[in-house]
Design a protein around this nucleic acid. Structure first.
Length: 419
DNA sequence: TCTGGGGTCCTATGCCTT
DNA sequence: TCTGAAGGCATAGGACCC
């Protein structure tokens, strides 16, 4: 059996742990740049604030209803997440950390356990030790555990936050209840197509023919169908495979038309990717650069483009990755466009101790020592103390984070005070 | 004026080699 | 040397997740 543990309104719950006066009030956490709502308390959901609501459009609703609004504080959420995961791992040896607020547990050899009450125990323990409320769905496959979790969350008074699908009747009823757009693995596009052919629930979906699903939704769709039918095909992925790409992308505060300004941003993104590479001891052998205009400004010329630049050797040097990124930018930059977003993605990752050497062209060995020194100084003196000459040396563009809460658990100077 | 960021997997396509 | 078939590989794009 699989259990899916999901933290309720996770980011909001993290804020509430350290600020109990937020309980019972509408609370919203915004994305980077204070752009849109990415976590909402139940009270905020009840006000009709949808997921991804642009903050500027909902400003009035926030004000009129006394909504408590926060900028996202990822160091805090990451730390709270690892505390929760830590507790979960005490209840079964088989755990897959699926995302910052979700984990799959597998119960093998638990035949004599009453899983429902066992999971109630998990729930109480997590709440007691971290202050984070969770919901638990239990079923024979991962996709069905997701369905069960949704029921647990939707009907807290009946389920007490834990729901178990352990009979055909329960499975069928659950699938008949679940709207097609709410099925795990069915996104906006597929949901629209399916609704067009009168497939409105998960139950309608499993009534389709395998061949149709395979043809129109690829093996991914077919796997999902099997899972919902109760045949387990998705296994627990306990050991996360190493990352295949690392990205640094940002939307700008306004729009940028000037090449030099975009170049400076791209260079900074590239350096940021290089730092992330070094932090996890890997190299890359290519860098993808992309730029795009504001997709919401329909009256302006729309343009989006990206290019993959291959680096002839494996590297994690600021200068090398930066140089290749700029080469790519030169090829895709178009004059007269109001750019809104850009980014770099490093790809072709391998361990920096064990990388392929190139017969003709290799990295200047001095870079390795230089990068080590830079990282050392950054760590000691703080980020952004050392920059490449072509990065903007005076001004520092910064993310908009006007409503940031303290890093209660991960910065000593911001630790919570008890009076 | 103001609409996030960071990932994964799958498939189609086109080129190259055998 | 040419030709067609088949497989490998890189790339781009679409779809999904949180």
């Amino acid at each position: 059996m699989f259990a899916l543990i999901d933290c309720n309104n996770f980011y909001v719950s993290c804020e509430r742990v350290f600020n109990p006066k937020l309980n019972k009030k509408p609370v919203v956490v915004l994305s980077n740049n204070d752009g849109c709502a990415i976590s909402r308390s139940n009270e905020a959901k009840a006000l009709g604030i949808p997921m991804g609501a642009p903050a500027f459009k909902y400003e009035n609703i926030f004000k009129e209803n006394d909504v408590e609004v926060f900028s996202s504080n990822f160091p805090l959420y990451g730390d709270m997440s690892s505390r929760v995961m830590n507790i979960l791992s005490k209840f079964t040896p088989n755990i897959e950390i699926y995302s910052i607020d979700e984990a799959f547990l597998k119960f093998e050899g638990f035949e004599n356990y009453d899983l429902e009450s066992y999971c109630q125990e998990i729930k109480h323990m997590v709440l007691k030790w971290t202050g984070i409320p969770i919901s638990v769905g239990i079923a024979s496959t991962k996709a069905l555990a997701k369905v069960a979790n949704r029921i647990a969350k939707k009907f807290p008074s009946q389920t007490k936050g834990v729901y178990l699908i352990n009979s055909e009747e329960k499975r069928i009823n659950a699938l008949k209840w679940l709207k097609i757009q709410d099925v795990w693995g069915i996104g906006f596009r597929h949901a629209e197509r399916l609704k067009n052919i009168k497939v409105n629930t998960a139950y309608n979906f499993i009534s389709l023919e395998d061949g149709w699903v395979r043809k129109n939704m690829s093996v991914v769709g077919l796997r999902l169908k099997k899972e919902l039918e109760g045949k387990s095909v998705l296994n627990l992925e306990e050991h996360r495979s190493p990352k295949k790409a690392i990205a640094t992308t940002r939307s700008f505060e306004g729009t940028i038309t000037d090449y030099e300004k975009i170049k400076e941003r791209i260079l900074t993104f590239a350096v940021c990717c290089a730092e992330k590479l070094r932090a996890q001891n890997t190299n890359c052998n290519s860098v993808y650069v992309f730029v795009r205009s504001n997709k919401f400004q329909k009256n302006k010329t729309q343009y989006r483009n990206g290019i993959l630049v291959t680096i002839p050797f494996s590297t994690n040097s600021n200068m090398v990755i930066g140089k290749h990124a700029i080469e790519g930018l030169k090829k895709i930059f178009k004059k007269g466009i109001h750019y809104k977003k850009a980014g770099t993605v490093v790809m072709g990752l391998d361990s920096s101790n064990n990388h392929q050497l190139n017969l003709f062209e290799n990295e200047d060995p001095r870079h390795k020592y230089l990068m080590k020194t830079i990282d050392f100084i950054q760590k000691k003196e703080g980020q952004n103390k050392i920059k490449l000459a072509s990065q903007d040396l005076r001004r520092r563009w910064k993310m908009k984070q006007e409503k940031l809460s303290p890093n209660y658990t991960c910065r000593l100077s911001e630790i919570i005070k008890v009076k």
